[in-house]
Nucleic acid binder design. Structure first.
Length: 979
RNA sequence: GCUCUGGUGGUGGAAUGGUAGACACGAGGGACUUAAAAUCCCUUGCCCGCAAGGGCGUGUGGGUUCAAGUCCCACCCGGAGUACCA
């Protein structure tokens, strides 16, 4: 009987589907016939990052992670766990919308089509997903809860003291009672007001103030505007001044946008990393992105104004670091110990103080610089980082510790978005300040030295001394202290003086949440207008929760409107009637009861931030997910996906989960307990080499004398096998190769190869369907695992796939022999092989070493073949071991040998310890502390036997003087000899 | 620059501090076959040697250890992340 994978695989896939074998229920009821004695099964949640269904379909890189997680999910199921292993689609996104703009096809239509194609491809690989739990982010039943969460964010503020999100209604009450007195709140701008002030304000003003504290808030912020895409982008969607999608230029622009106050959670996002089982590198990526740095905020008075700073003023930090009376400004530094080395100050070009402090003589120059700096694109700015630019304001500040007058400059190397947008420059100990000082000929003063009391002339330095080590010098009262001590001492001093305080700064900025696009979740927000004192205010209001979902309207065009509004501006029915609580025509807007709805939509990460929770209870239309569901599943035990989401999705999802945790909905603070990053699969391109002398002559790789004589040409990897070109198919491939002649080596044309990105234009895209058709899903699954460690990036090549396929054929042959030859008896050695395999496979799976697991299977089958053993007693447990990796063949064998139910319901075999005892053990023999030789002894050897063996030691042991008297076994398999 | 990773045959890759190179591919040789495919067997890190055997070998240089691919220090070279973040 042949191993006919193309018949048996679809047959089992159909069976699994019809029988609902992978359907999971919440709760641990033992649905398995031979389950864990009726006891409640433990739960386990294995999740893949759901894909964006692109038009190109799956390539072999996509399923790598899915296969790994499927193996683990199946393994856990076989070990008696109730395993949640769902799949869905991140269906909102730019490509479908770009396609719609070009072709007029509705994104919903193309998305639907792509999903169908993905599903078809996924099904062929034999995954154990519970498709009853599928979610799609573009499905109103799903995004209802994305919108719902947004409303909760909108209706929440963050209390820094409680380290928790709380309802905004609570804040309204507190404001009415005590104003901002005694509160520490996450906000856009520091505000201070009394209860009386609050109570006097009208509704519009109050709403404006509340917006400052909401976790989802509307604010004028500098955004990454991508004109080509017609939308703003989040920081992680921009790399090097270009959009990640499409690579279009991005500029800074001040726009009114929805943002999520993710910065409020910065500290918790850092702390939470301690609790999760992720790789160090990914944790580090997140830590760097969050960018926590400790330091001090210090007020520097302006020279020429009164330099006294009142303490209560100093504790607060008004907008962009400026005193309301304009007599001082605040800076942030991580090196307070170097304050005696400040020789100039620098403000960012956006700093509010610039206008008021610039002297008349400098005004023109400063204004020209600020204009220039503001209009520079992000890309230009980043490309010219090394170029020093800036201008003197003519104004001076006073160093609060030395009373020294120091000049104030403006330069774009100081960023508006970080700290207070102003710095104290210490050129001797900061490389950027150093470059600036050198460029403008400003003084450089050494205040830190590696050795106590030893200084040198900074004029002779080629670079600044940035390291936080050594001792303070020339630094007043901290001179002689170690850097760390000096930092503490200076902070203590400035706190005592009331001009500054210890503080922590984060690089992480709030996430901009608006996209000027069509294909995304609409905001459940409408705008009421107020007219107060001749001024018009717009107040954002959430639509009532019970009216959700607010469905994405139809539009006539997917492009922005003529007035530059987002595509939703084309929608006819896009106004909110507060009387009927329903969507009505835009023409009905009266600003009395009918109001305009928000025109932008939510970004891609909105729908993907909480999807793992929805899988727990995907059809619930009353709640996001039920309490009992989340109580049962808790959080994701194992999450598998690419590390490229380290600064995007994985930050947003953690934030989202922490927020839901604060609301009491999520039960664990961290959503993903263990995380494995599957390495990217790169393409492996093949080349043919065309002779430059003869356009129809192609030279085999080994015969090329010089690469200058030939032109390498990408060739479709599907007509190359093990780097050997199928010359006939090559001639047929394209008309230009029809007349091709070849210079062959050993009758073959050998192609060159190179590792490149997997892309259509390089003809190196491997489609999993082709491999499934040729070798079967089981071979594909095993091969993808065999390729190397899951975490490691590697180029795709099919050079070893035959070996894996051969293994399955050998396994099949054992099974076939077993069926045809019932007289096959077990022998002790084959049982031993089985038990060794059980132990090794279990170990390998537990440590996610799937590539060695596949090797283990190969060794096992080879050994059993040698041992001529093919009894059902050995093969049935083997089928179970193999089931996570190659479920189809495992199922077939299991059934063929009389297994009950499906192999998915079997029990993971337990190995017998006694079977594994080694016959012999190798001991290093040690004498006088020196290792002398290796000795092989029976595993159960006694002291006496060991002594005899040492006496009878080989020639190499003749160094010994006298007879060994005693042999001592010491840990780690060493024999010590005493004479 | 900073941070994280990794460096082992012709290739992908194995090795709780204990015989480096498992397993697989590729290559070479052989069996079966009229032939091919499929299948099976042998060889395959490098150097010397007819052989038995010997020498050298995990990026480089040191160190710890009876014993180092593995641990420690310094350096070199890749890959990734991030970048005027004060």
């Amino acid at each position: 009987m042949e191993y006919n994978f193309s018949e048996l695989e679809p047959r089992w896939q159909k069976y699994w589907k019809e029988e609902g074998v992978y359907h999971v229920e919440n709760g641990g009821e033992p649905s398995r016939p031979n389950g864990s004695n009726g006891s409640v099964r433990p739960h386990f949640y294995v999740l893949d990052m759901f894909p964006y269904p692109s038009g190109a379909g799956l390539h072999v890189g996509h399923p790598l992670g899915y296969i790994a997680s499927d193996i683990y999910a199946r393994y856990k199921r076989l070990r008696g766990y109730n395993v949640l292993h769902p799949m869905g689609y991140d269906a909102y996104g730019l490509p479908a919308e770009q396609y719609a703009i070009q072709t007029g096809q509705h994104p919903a239509v193309t998305t639907e089509k792509n999903i169908a194609r993905y599903r078809e491809q996924l099904d062929k690989i034999g995954f154990s997903f519970d498709w009853d739990r599928e979610v799609r982010t573009c499905d109103p039943k799903y995004y209802k809860w994305t919108q719902w969460t947004f409303i909760q964010l909108f209706n929440s503020y963050y209390c820094n003291q409680a380290r928790q999100a709380r309802p905004i209604s609570e804040l309204v009450e507190v404001f009415a009672k005590q104003g901002t007195e005694g509160l520490d709140l996450a906000c856009t701008e520091e505000m201070h007001f009394s209860a009386d002030e609050w109570n006097c304000w009208d509704e519009a003003k109050r709403q404006q103030v509340l917006m400052n504290y909401r976790l989802a808030y509307l604010a004028d912020t500098y955004v990454n505007w991508c004109a080509e895409l017609g939308t703003v982008l989040a920081n992680d969607e921009v790399v090097g001044g270009l959009s990640v999608r499409g690579g279009y230029p991005v500029e800074r622009k001040l726009m009114r946008q929805w943002s999520l106050r993710i910065s409020a959670y910065a500290q918790r996002l850092v702390d939470g990393l301690e609790q999760v089982d992720w790789t160090d590198s990914l944790k580090e990526i997140q830590r760097n992105w969050i960018g926590r740095s400790e330091g001090a905020a210090v007020w520097f008075p302006l020279a020429g104004t009164h330099s006294s700073v009142s303490p209560e003023r100093a504790d607060s930090s008004p907008n962009i670091g400026e005193h309301q009376d304009g007599t001082a400004f605040e800076i942030f530094t991580t090196r307070p110990d170097t304050i005696f080395g400040v020789t100039f100050m620098v403000l960012c070009p956006e700093h509010e103080l610039i206008g008021s402090i610039t002297t008349p003589e400098q005004k023109a120059e400063v204004e020209a610089y600020v204009t220039w700096a503001k209009n520079r694109s992000e890309r230009e700015r980043q490309a010219e980082v090394k170029k020093v630019s800036g201008v003197f304001t003519g104004a001076f500040a006073v160093n609060p510790l030395t009373e020294e007058k120091i000049p104030i400059y403006v330069s774009d190397y100081v960023l508006a978005g970080y700290g207070t947008g102003a710095i104290m420059a210490v050129p001797a100990h900061d490389s950027r300040d150093f470059a600036f000082a050198r460029h403008f000929g400003l003084p450089i003063r050494q205040v830190v030295s590696l050795e106590k009391d030893v200084t040198s002339d900074p004029a002779t330095w080629s670079e600044s001394m940035d390291a936080k080590t050594g001792y303070s010098v020339n630094s007043g009262f901290v001179t002689g202290m170690k850097v760390k001590e000096a930092m503490a001492a200076v902070i203590d001093k400035i706190e005592e003086m009331g001009i500054g305080h210890r503080t922590v700064n984060f690089r992480l900025r709030d996430a901009i949440f608006s996209r000027q696009r069509y294909w995304g979740e609409p905001f459940p927000i409408y705008y009421k207008s107020y007219e107060v004192g001749g001024k018009r205010y717009e107040v954002a209001c959430a639509i009532p929760e019970e009216c959700l979902p607010l469905e994405l309207p139809e539009v006539s065009e997917f492009k922005p409107t003529a007035t530059g509004e987002p595509p939703l501006g084309h929608a006819k029915r896009w106004a909110w009637d507060t009387k009927t609580n329903s969507v009505v025509d835009v023409s009905d807007i009266d600003n009395e009861t009918v109001f305009p709805l928000e025109l932008s939509t939510m970004p891609g990460f909105a729908g993907s931030s909480g999807y793992y929770l929805r899988y727990m209870d995907p059809t619930n239309d009353k709640e996001y997910f039920s309490e009992s569901a989340v109580d049962y599943w808790q959080n994701v035990d194992l999450y598998v996906g690419g590390a490229e989401h380290g600064t995007g999705h994985l930050i947003y999802a953690r934030f989202w989960n922490k927020f839901l945790f604060d609301l009491g909905l999520a039960k664990k603070e961290e959503p993903f307990q263990k995380l494995i990053n599957q390495g990217m699969i790169q393409g492996r391109s093949n080349f043919v080499y065309r002779s430059k002398a003869d356009n129809n002559l192609y030279i085999s790789k080994g015969l090329i004398k010089s690469m200058d004589d030939v032109t390498p040409i990408h060739v479709d990897i599907n007509i190359v096998d093990n780097d050997v070109l199928d010359v006939e198919r090559f001639r047929e491939w394209r008309p230009e190769f029809k007349e091709a002649r070849f210079e062959l080596e050993d009758g073959k044309y050998i192609c060159g190869w190179e590792v490149e990105k997997m892309s259509k234009s390089m003809f190196n895209v491997q489609n999993p369907d082709d491999l499934v058709a040729r070798y079967g899903a089981d071979t594909l699954r095993l091969y993808e695992m065999f390729l190397g460690p899951v975490e490691q990036a590697k180029p795709w090549d099919t050079n070893g796939i035959e070996g894996v396929h051969r293994f399955l054929k050998k396994f099949w042959k054992l099974y076939d022999n077993c069926l045809s030859n019932q007289s096959n008896q077990n022998n002790p050695s084959s049982l031993k092989t089985l038990h060794q395999t059980i132990k090794k496979i279990t170990d390998d799976i537990e440590r996610f070493s799937f590539n060695t697991a596949v090797s283990t299977f190969m060794i096992c089958v080879n050994t059993l073949t040698d041992q001529k053993c093919a009894s059902a007693e050995v093969l049935k447990p083997l089928a179970v071991l193999l089931a996570p990796f190659a479920p189809h063949i495992a199922e077939e064998v299991w059934h063929g040998l009389g297994g009950e139910g499906t192999v998915c319901d079997a029990e993971w075999p337990v190995y017998d310890e006694k079977m594994l005892v080694e016959d012999t053990v190798k001991y290093p023999v040690q004498f006088n502390g020196k290792m002398r030789f290796m000795l092989e002894l029976p595993a159960a050897a006694t002291q006496q036997e060991a002594l005899e063996a040492v006496k009878a030691a080989p020639e190499s042991a003749k160094w010994m003087t006298g007879e060994p008297k005693k042999v001592i076994f010491v840990p780690k398999k060493i024999i010590n000899i005493v004479c």
